[in-house]
Protein backbone atom coordinates (compact mmCIF):
# COMPACT_ATOMS: atom_id res chain seq x y z
CA UNK A 1 0.00 0.00 0.00
CA UNK A 2 1.62 3.24 -1.00
CA UNK A 3 0.20 6.72 -0.53
CA UNK A 4 -0.57 7.16 -4.19
CA UNK A 5 -2.62 4.02 -4.55
CA UNK A 6 -4.67 4.56 -1.39
CA UNK A 7 -7.64 6.84 -1.30
CA UNK A 8 -5.68 9.09 1.02
CA UNK A 9 -5.79 11.96 -1.41
CA UNK A 10 -9.55 12.02 -1.25
CA UNK A 11 -9.34 12.31 2.50
CA UNK A 12 -7.74 15.71 2.55
CA UNK A 13 -9.16 18.24 4.92
CA UNK A 14 -11.58 19.79 2.46
CA UNK A 15 -13.26 16.64 1.29
CA UNK A 16 -13.57 14.99 4.66
CA UNK A 17 -17.24 15.20 5.40
CA UNK A 18 -18.37 15.26 8.99
CA UNK A 19 -20.09 12.16 10.25
CA UNK A 20 -18.39 9.58 8.07
CA UNK A 21 -15.52 9.23 10.50
CA UNK A 22 -15.51 9.21 14.24
CA UNK A 23 -12.27 11.02 14.84
CA UNK A 24 -11.14 14.37 13.52
CA UNK A 25 -14.06 15.22 11.31
CA UNK A 26 -12.17 18.35 10.44
CA UNK A 27 -8.46 17.80 10.20
CA UNK A 28 -6.44 19.82 12.63
CA UNK A 29 -3.68 22.13 11.52
CA UNK A 30 -0.41 22.15 13.40
CA UNK A 31 2.27 24.69 12.62
CA UNK A 32 5.13 26.59 14.17
CA UNK A 33 6.15 30.15 13.73
CA UNK A 34 9.77 31.17 14.24
CA UNK A 35 10.09 28.39 16.80
CA UNK A 36 13.35 28.27 18.74
CA UNK A 37 13.96 25.49 21.27
CA UNK A 38 16.94 25.25 23.57
CA UNK A 39 18.44 23.15 26.33
CA UNK A 40 20.08 25.67 28.61
CA UNK A 41 22.01 27.96 26.29
CA UNK A 42 22.33 25.36 23.54
CA UNK A 43 19.87 26.22 20.77
CA UNK A 44 18.76 23.00 19.14
CA UNK A 45 15.92 24.21 16.93
CA UNK A 46 16.30 27.68 15.44
CA UNK A 47 13.60 29.90 13.98
CA UNK A 48 11.64 27.07 12.43
CA UNK A 49 8.39 27.91 10.70
CA UNK A 50 6.75 24.77 9.41
CA UNK A 51 3.15 23.86 8.63
CA UNK A 52 2.14 20.23 9.05
CA UNK A 53 -0.32 19.40 6.26
CA UNK A 54 -3.63 18.45 7.92
CA UNK A 55 -4.85 14.91 7.48
CA UNK A 56 -1.56 13.73 5.98
CA UNK A 57 1.52 11.85 7.08
CA UNK A 58 4.52 14.06 7.66
CA UNK A 59 7.92 12.51 8.24
CA UNK A 60 10.81 14.42 9.77
CA UNK A 61 14.25 13.18 8.74
CA UNK A 62 17.70 14.39 9.58
CA UNK A 63 21.09 13.29 10.81
CA UNK A 64 21.71 12.31 14.43
CA UNK A 65 21.69 15.43 16.58
CA UNK A 66 20.08 17.56 13.89
CA UNK A 67 17.25 18.56 16.24
CA UNK A 68 14.48 16.48 14.69
CA UNK A 69 13.39 14.81 17.92
CA UNK A 70 13.59 18.14 19.71
CA UNK A 71 11.36 19.66 17.04
CA UNK A 72 8.86 16.88 17.68
CA UNK A 73 9.02 17.50 21.43
CA UNK A 74 8.38 21.16 20.72
CA UNK A 75 5.36 20.29 18.59
CA UNK A 76 4.05 18.22 21.50
CA UNK A 77 4.60 21.10 23.94
CA UNK A 78 7.03 19.01 25.95
CA UNK A 79 9.43 21.93 25.67
CA UNK A 80 8.47 25.54 26.10
CA UNK A 81 9.60 27.62 23.11
CA UNK A 82 12.55 29.88 23.79
CA UNK A 83 11.13 32.13 21.07
CA UNK A 84 8.23 31.84 18.65
CA UNK A 85 5.22 29.61 19.08
CA UNK A 86 3.49 26.38 18.14
CA UNK A 87 0.00 26.82 16.74
CA UNK A 88 -2.81 24.29 16.88
CA UNK A 89 -5.63 25.29 14.55
CA UNK A 90 -4.07 28.74 14.48
CA UNK A 91 -4.16 29.18 18.27
CA UNK A 92 -1.04 29.42 20.37
CA UNK A 93 -0.63 26.03 21.99
CA UNK A 94 0.83 27.55 25.14
CA UNK A 95 -2.66 28.84 26.02
CA UNK A 96 -4.41 25.46 25.77
CA UNK A 97 -5.27 23.51 28.91
CA UNK A 98 -3.39 20.28 29.55
CA UNK A 99 -6.46 18.10 29.11
CA UNK A 100 -7.71 19.89 26.01
CA UNK A 101 -4.32 19.52 24.41
CA UNK A 102 -4.09 15.85 25.36
CA UNK A 103 -7.45 15.17 23.73
CA UNK A 104 -6.22 16.68 20.50
CA UNK A 105 -2.54 15.78 20.37
CA UNK A 106 -0.83 12.53 21.29
CA UNK A 107 2.86 11.73 21.49
CA UNK A 108 4.66 8.42 21.54
CA UNK A 109 8.12 9.15 23.02
CA UNK A 110 11.20 7.23 21.95
CA UNK A 111 11.57 5.32 25.18
CA UNK A 112 8.43 5.34 27.30
CA UNK A 113 8.52 3.56 30.66
CA UNK A 114 6.25 0.61 31.31
CA UNK A 115 5.64 -0.01 35.02
CA UNK A 116 6.60 -3.56 35.92
CA UNK A 117 3.78 -6.06 35.84
CA UNK A 118 1.37 -3.85 33.90
CA UNK A 119 -0.85 -5.74 31.46
CA UNK A 120 -1.33 -4.73 27.84
CA UNK A 121 -4.96 -3.75 28.32
CA UNK A 122 -4.12 -1.67 31.39
CA UNK A 123 -1.35 0.08 29.47
CA UNK A 124 -3.58 0.82 26.50
CA UNK A 125 -6.33 1.94 28.87
CA UNK A 126 -4.08 4.62 30.31
CA UNK A 127 -4.30 6.35 26.95
CA UNK A 128 -7.92 7.15 27.76
CA UNK A 129 -6.95 9.41 30.61
CA UNK A 130 -7.60 12.72 28.84
CA UNK A 131 -11.18 11.61 28.16
CA UNK A 132 -11.92 10.58 31.73
CA UNK A 133 -12.94 12.70 34.69
CA UNK A 134 -13.10 11.84 38.36
CA UNK A 135 -16.89 11.62 38.08
CA UNK A 136 -16.77 9.67 34.81
CA UNK A 137 -13.96 7.20 35.18
CA UNK A 138 -14.99 4.76 32.55
CA UNK A 139 -17.51 4.88 29.73
CA UNK A 140 -18.57 2.70 26.85
CA UNK A 141 -16.56 5.01 24.62
CA UNK A 142 -13.44 4.12 26.60
CA UNK A 143 -13.99 0.38 26.22
CA UNK A 144 -14.72 0.82 22.53
CA UNK A 145 -11.63 2.94 21.93
CA UNK A 146 -9.39 0.51 23.82
CA UNK A 147 -10.81 -2.48 21.96
CA UNK A 148 -10.51 -0.71 18.61
CA UNK A 149 -6.94 0.35 19.31
CA UNK A 150 -5.90 -3.18 20.25
CA UNK A 151 -7.76 -4.57 17.26
CA UNK A 152 -6.09 -2.13 14.90
CA UNK A 153 -2.63 -2.98 16.19
CA UNK A 154 -3.38 -6.70 16.30
CA UNK A 155 -2.71 -7.18 19.99
CA UNK A 156 -6.20 -8.15 21.14
CA UNK A 157 -4.95 -11.64 21.99
CA UNK A 158 -2.24 -10.20 24.18
CA UNK A 159 -4.62 -8.11 26.29
CA UNK A 160 -3.93 -9.82 29.61
CA UNK A 161 -0.22 -10.45 29.07
CA UNK A 162 2.29 -8.40 31.10
CA UNK A 163 4.04 -5.88 28.88
CA UNK A 164 7.51 -6.93 30.08
CA UNK A 165 6.98 -10.40 28.60
CA UNK A 166 6.28 -9.13 25.08
CA UNK A 167 8.70 -9.09 22.19
CA UNK A 168 10.04 -5.77 20.96
CA UNK A 169 7.56 -5.61 18.11
CA UNK A 170 4.60 -6.51 20.28
CA UNK A 171 5.64 -3.98 22.87
CA UNK A 172 5.90 -1.24 20.27
CA UNK A 173 2.44 -2.14 19.06
CA UNK A 174 1.11 -1.91 22.60
CA UNK A 175 2.52 1.58 22.93
CA UNK A 176 1.07 2.52 19.59
CA UNK A 177 -2.28 1.18 20.74
CA UNK A 178 -2.04 3.45 23.77
CA UNK A 179 -1.51 6.43 21.48
CA UNK A 180 -4.44 5.31 19.29
CA UNK A 181 -6.75 4.84 22.25
CA UNK A 182 -6.05 8.43 23.15
CA UNK A 183 -7.87 9.30 19.89
CA UNK A 184 -6.01 12.53 19.29
CA UNK A 185 -6.49 14.60 16.14
CA UNK A 186 -2.75 14.77 15.68
CA UNK A 187 -0.39 11.90 16.46
CA UNK A 188 3.33 12.51 16.96
CA UNK A 189 5.62 9.51 16.98
CA UNK A 190 9.32 9.65 17.79
CA UNK A 191 11.14 6.91 15.88
CA UNK A 192 8.40 4.32 16.37
CA UNK A 193 10.27 1.77 14.26
CA UNK A 194 13.34 1.58 16.47
CA UNK A 195 14.05 -1.98 17.65
CA UNK A 196 11.76 -3.48 15.01
CA UNK A 197 12.83 -5.81 12.22
CA UNK A 198 12.08 -4.79 8.66
CA UNK A 199 8.83 -6.73 8.47
CA UNK A 200 7.57 -5.15 11.68
CA UNK A 201 8.72 -1.72 10.55
CA UNK A 202 6.71 -2.08 7.36
CA UNK A 203 3.75 -3.47 9.32
CA UNK A 204 3.77 -0.52 11.65
CA UNK A 205 4.04 2.05 8.87
CA UNK A 206 1.32 0.32 6.85
CA UNK A 207 -0.83 0.44 9.94
CA UNK A 208 -0.23 4.15 10.40
CA UNK A 209 -0.96 4.74 6.71
CA UNK A 210 -4.16 2.75 7.00
CA UNK A 211 -5.25 4.67 10.07
CA UNK A 212 -4.41 7.92 8.40
CA UNK A 213 -6.38 6.92 5.33
CA UNK A 214 -9.47 5.76 7.21
CA UNK A 215 -9.52 8.30 10.03
CA UNK A 216 -7.83 11.23 8.35
CA UNK A 217 -5.65 11.66 11.41
CA UNK A 218 -2.75 14.07 11.02
CA UNK A 219 0.40 12.09 11.70
CA UNK A 220 3.95 13.30 12.29
CA UNK A 221 6.80 10.80 12.54
CA UNK A 222 10.49 11.00 13.09
CA UNK A 223 12.15 8.25 11.06
CA UNK A 224 15.72 7.27 10.43
CA UNK A 225 15.25 5.20 7.31
CA UNK A 226 15.10 7.56 4.34
CA UNK A 227 13.60 5.02 1.99
CA UNK A 228 10.80 4.05 4.34
CA UNK A 229 10.22 7.73 4.98
CA UNK A 230 10.02 8.35 1.27
CA UNK A 231 7.57 5.53 0.76
CA UNK A 232 5.15 6.39 3.54
CA UNK A 233 5.36 10.17 3.82
CA UNK A 234 3.02 12.52 2.06
CA UNK A 235 5.17 15.33 3.23
CA UNK A 236 8.86 15.12 4.05
CA UNK A 237 10.71 17.59 6.26
CA UNK A 238 14.51 17.45 6.28
CA UNK A 239 16.16 19.04 9.31
CA UNK A 240 19.77 20.14 9.48
CA UNK A 241 21.42 21.96 12.39
CA UNK A 242 18.06 22.87 13.88
CA UNK A 243 16.68 24.41 10.70
CA UNK A 244 14.49 23.13 7.91
CA UNK A 245 16.78 22.22 5.04
CA UNK A 246 14.01 21.14 2.66
CA UNK A 247 10.37 20.19 2.78
CA UNK A 248 7.72 18.97 0.36
CA UNK A 249 6.63 15.74 -1.27
CA UNK A 250 9.30 13.02 -1.10
CA UNK A 251 9.90 13.25 -4.82
CA UNK A 252 10.93 16.89 -4.42
CA UNK A 253 12.93 16.55 -1.22
CA UNK A 254 14.79 13.33 -1.81
CA UNK A 255 17.31 14.59 -4.33
CA UNK A 256 21.03 13.78 -4.37
CA UNK A 257 21.83 17.39 -3.52
CA UNK A 258 19.56 17.58 -0.48
CA UNK A 259 20.78 14.25 0.85
CA UNK A 260 24.34 15.34 0.34
CA UNK A 261 23.77 18.54 2.29
CA UNK A 262 21.58 17.11 5.07
CA UNK A 263 23.35 13.80 5.70
CA UNK A 264 26.75 14.52 4.13
CA UNK A 265 26.22 11.37 2.15
CA UNK A 266 26.72 10.95 -1.52
CA UNK A 267 23.74 9.17 -3.07
CA UNK A 268 22.11 8.20 -6.29
CA UNK A 269 18.31 8.49 -6.33
CA UNK A 270 16.20 6.08 -8.34
CA UNK A 271 12.49 5.46 -8.48
CA UNK A 272 11.07 2.56 -6.51
CA UNK A 273 9.92 0.05 -9.12
CA UNK A 274 6.99 -0.90 -6.86
CA UNK A 275 5.62 2.45 -5.82
CA UNK A 276 7.36 5.06 -7.89
CA UNK A 277 8.62 6.88 -4.82
CA UNK A 278 12.28 7.91 -4.77
CA UNK A 279 14.89 5.62 -3.24
CA UNK A 280 18.27 6.85 -2.12
CA UNK A 281 21.18 4.53 -2.78
CA UNK A 282 24.40 5.49 -1.00
CA UNK A 283 27.36 5.48 -3.37
CA UNK A 284 30.10 3.02 -2.46
CA UNK A 285 32.86 4.95 -0.75
CA UNK A 286 36.16 4.88 -2.62
CA UNK A 287 38.77 3.05 -0.59
Amino acid sequence: MNPDSTPATTLSATTLSAGTLSASATATTLSTSDLTLAYGDRHVVRDVSVAVPPGRITVIVGANGSGKSTLLRGLARLMAPRRGSVLLDGRDMARLGARTLAQRLGLLPQQPLAPDGITVSDLVGRGRHPHQRWFRQHTEADSAAIAAAMEATGITDLAERPVDELSGGQRQRAWLALALAQEPDVMLLDEPTTYLDLAHQVDLLELLTHLNATLGRTTVLVLHDLNLASRYAHHLVAVKDGRIAAEGPPADVLTPDTIESVFSLSCAVINDPLTGTPIALPRPQPR
Binding site: L78, A98, L107, L108, H129
Partner: peptide, 17 residues
Amino acid sequence: GSLNLLALGEDMARSLG
Protein backbone atom coordinates in the same frame (compact mmCIF):
# COMPACT_ATOMS: atom_id res chain seq x y z
CA GLY B 1 -4.98 8.51 37.93
CA SER B 2 -2.23 11.02 37.28
CA LEU B 3 0.28 8.91 39.18
CA ASN B 4 -0.56 6.11 36.76
CA LEU B 5 0.42 8.41 33.92
CA LEU B 6 3.58 9.55 35.69
CA ALA B 7 4.63 5.90 35.82
CA LEU B 8 4.83 5.93 31.99
CA GLY B 9 7.54 8.58 32.08
CA GLU B 10 7.30 12.34 32.13
CA ASP B 11 6.92 12.85 28.35
CA MET B 12 4.14 10.31 28.04
CA ALA B 13 2.40 11.67 31.13
CA ARG B 14 2.38 15.19 29.77
CA SER B 15 1.19 14.16 26.35
CA LEU B 16 -1.68 12.34 28.04
CA GLY B 17 -2.69 15.55 29.73
